[in-house]
Design a protein around this nucleic acid. Structure first.
Lengths: 210, 210
DNA sequence: CAGAACAAGGAACGATCGTTCTCTTATCCC
DNA sequence: GGGATAAGAGAACGATCGTTCCTTGTTCTG
């Protein structure tokens, strides 16, 4: 006769508390890394007790995975939305706008530094590793499609393997994330601009060949 | 059990012991990361006692820094030696041979995975951060010189900022290291080949423009 | 051959770790 | 409004951490 297993507080309340813990944990992890951060640090930062936190996360590892996946899908979404909508311009323009958006996101919440933490964690956590592998593969597939488009219009060498070209171009994204983590979002690299210069729009490329 | 306590001993002996500890530590760190590895793990892996290990390294952090710097300068040396001797071919060929050498080194001793650990550590360790920053800057300067050469022979756009182009190309190296750490040295990516296709030697580029 | 010098061994330390458990407080339904 | 129950607090736990320190054994020096 358990007609109603009614919670004592609203779902929205529970969600808010969970997010409050995740936000605090993120700040801690960003400050000290996953394994140099103690649960006591998270309790203090969140303003909650161990009992409360352990109600929402069954272990420290659970929390790490939750945050890692959040960061992973953030970057994924960024790249995917821009890859799906190729802006009509050249490959350089597409790549540059991905990098610009990543830089903005890094200025807002240090996505580069968190990415580095996640890469390192993923080496040891099989669950994260699987997620990360499939995320990268998916991004590479998206990118290969774009590469093929640019091979057709002549702005990329037609003979080359599109998947391999995509894999090469893909490495620029983690490389840029590391660059941001190291030098900051304000660093005066002209990396996106360099991408635009290196792979100009097809019409420009054709014009300059005259 | 073991050859007990060796007194007054040659410098070569001391160096060998130190290296024995570093090698053991490297294996441990590779297996479990820096902070998930305990000193007890290192004692066991090296076959030495805490007393012995602490004679050679004053703290765990000291050991981490020693190993991180070793890995950093390994990669540095690899890239530098190939960058200094540009092989006469195109930019793609130069980049591809750097990547090939890095892949071989990864097959031998997991340089990609260790690099990821170091990046993450460097976020929190100011000493490592400084070393890493200056290492990257140095590599970028080398690379910018090469870029300028290829701008002069027309295989790269002359109008673009050479430093920024170098910074963009640089991101490929950590990106590739991460790729290796994730997918392994045997993964059937054609990334070096893609680099060759993307930036062929100047003569080839000129010939294909006909 | 005595004993100084010193590398290596390993027990032990206090601190801190992640987690559990008990108790209090707040909220809901009837 | 009272009983049931969930949320949260916080003391306490055993384990394990990095490190210290005293001992042991060996080879060198004089």
């Amino acid at each position: 006769m358990y007609a109603h297993a009614v919670p004592k507080v609203s779902q929205a309340y529970l969600d808010a508390r969970r997010q409050q813990i995740l936000d605090a944990a993120r700040r801690c992890f960003m400050r000290n890394g996953f394994h140099e951060t103690s649960m006591q640090d998270v309790f203090a930062e969140s303003g909650l007790s161990s009992g409360a936190v352990y109600r929402y996360f069954s272990s420290k590892d659970d929390m790490i995975v939750a945050i890692a996946e959040e960061n992973m899908s953030d970057v994924m979404a960024l790249v995917h939305s821009l890859a799906a909508d190729p802006h009509g311009e050249g490959l350089g323009e597409a790549l540059a706008s991905v990098l610009d958006v990543i830089r903005e996101k890094h200025a807002r919440d240090d996505v580069g530094a968190m990415a580095v933490l996640v890469w390192s964690e993923q080496l040891r956590n099989p669950k994260l590793k699987r997620r990360f592998e499939s995320a990268l593969r998916e991004m590479r597939t998206d990118l290969a499609e774009i590469v093929r488009g640019h091979q057709d219009d002549g702005s990329l060498p037609a003979g080359a393997n599109a998947e391999a070209l995509a894999a090469l171009l893909m490495t620029i994204i983690p490389g840029f994330l590391l660059h941001l983590a190291l030098f900051g979002a304000d660093s005066d690299d002209g990396i996106p601009a360099a991408a635009r210069a290196l792979w100009p729009a097809a019409s420009v490329a054709r014009a300059s060949e005259s």
